[in-house]
Design a protein around this nucleic acid. Structure first.
Lengths: 228, 228
DNA sequence: CAGCAAACATAGGTATGACTAAACAGCAGG
DNA sequence: CCTGCTGTTTAGTCATACCTATGTTTGCTG
């Protein structure tokens, strides 16, 4: 039987997975805030249960079944977050922690009732893509702010951080999902990003710029301007 | 740190407790569907954590702190049941099981938001009294149907059973919270109760009559009668 | 290519919470 | 008073999931 712990590990593995290389024990341990030994132990149980493919001293990768579970848990989490915020008026800084506990416990059936109530949203509280009902993950078409070109006009699609302090800071400078911004300058030596947002100039450190995802704003000047 | 298991045991102890004698290990084990040995083990942990008073070979009783936790869990459970049914449209036979999982996980803060949304109800889905926000348990003024006098006009206040089959049967004969009924006859030898409910005559066995709580109907002129 | 440090795995310990099997307490009846 | 039954507790085992301490690999670097 699956436990909350295994669900959490699978979720963490999904976040860490990339096309290229398998996830390292240390990376998993760091994200889960446990020792490497504990991570090894859990990886072995997951491998035994066929939820991951594992080779010692090499790395670990989700199996199709493991991925399915991870996406389900992530969908639950994001729907619950939205539900807590929009339907129950839970303050944004408490929503994440509460959803963390609920996600393992709320039945799929009830999550889908919440999703219906919310109008089957495609993105979560901070703009994260939500896995679909059937387990498919929509393709991510945006890119990280840190990689964007100078002078580009951008729209924030997602904030990839759930730390309350970080979010609070971003709110204070007017940066959140759907904010518009322009990159003014990239400082060579310390990699700081100077941006214009809401009529003001702000500076972002590289770690922050790495956690904000953006999409290019369509250039609409010349033809019929349509404001939505 | 409290766990789901300890919460469940405390809840069970609250249900079993009476003024007179302490709860027996066997009774607790039966309700929790574990062996007596397991119950003993848990009782010892609860005693160690000062959540119960315990004497070997004698019995166990909730401490004030244990009682406080039990009442909190029960309040959570009942509010969540109502919320699931009324706000999310979860069908009545699935509500109990879902709430069983949620009750340990939903923060007090969010439960109270649900309670506000529901208008701070005093009774649960099946008419059970809900412990108050501050931990007080309202006094039970009703009594069990099995003890009621013949000829009495009664209103159902509570159905003390969460078995889906039992509930389904009661629904089918038109008995639920707020139903009105009259006791026609009590059969001496097999203790069956003959009642009039919704214009029909029904017969209840003693085990069922023991699980239904009723209040005497105030004798008033029938002007604003609520139909359920 | 050898050697070393970082990354990873194993061994052994703890707590929870379940189980079975076996010992033991307490009360009733002979 | 002792015997025996019922109820209860103890003892020992197992799985999960964490820890610390200690080995083992791997890959980088001189």
């Amino acid at each position: 039987m699956r436990s909350q712990s295994t669900d959490d590990y699978l979720k963490a593995l999904y976040k860490l997975e990339t096309e290229e290389k398998p996830v390292s024990t240390t990376a998993l341990a760091r994200l889960m805030k446990v020792t490497a030994a504990s991570a090894t132990g859990m990886i072995q149980r997951l491998a035994r249960d066929k939820l991951v493919a594992y080779r010692r001293y090499y790395g670990v990768r989700l199996s199709p079944e493991g991925k399915r579970i991870a996406l389900r848990v992530i969908r639950n989490h994001r729907i619950i977050e939205l539900f807590l915020a929009e339907e129950l008026g839970v303050s944004w800084d408490k929503v994440h922690q509460e959803a963390e506990a609920w996600e393992h416990v709320v039945s799929t059936e009830v999550v889908e009732k919440m999703a219906d109530r919310l109008g089957n949203p495609k993105r979560g509280q901070r703009g994260q893509l939500i896995p679909e009902r059937d387990g498919a993950m929509p393709e991510q078409r945006d890119h990280v702010l840190a990689d964007a070109a100078i002078g580009a006009l951008l729209r924030v699609t997602e904030v990839e951080d759930d730390d309350a302090g970080v979010l609070q800071h971003l709110v204070s400078i007017g940066l959140g999902p759907d904010s518009r911004l322009e990159i003014t300058e990239r400082r060579q030596y310390d990699n700081l990003l100077v941006i214009r947002v809401g009529g003001k100039t702000e500076i972002l450190g590289p770690s922050l710029a790495q956690r904000i995802r953006v999409a290019r704003l369509p250039v609409v000047r010349r033809s019929k301007e349509k404001v939505v």
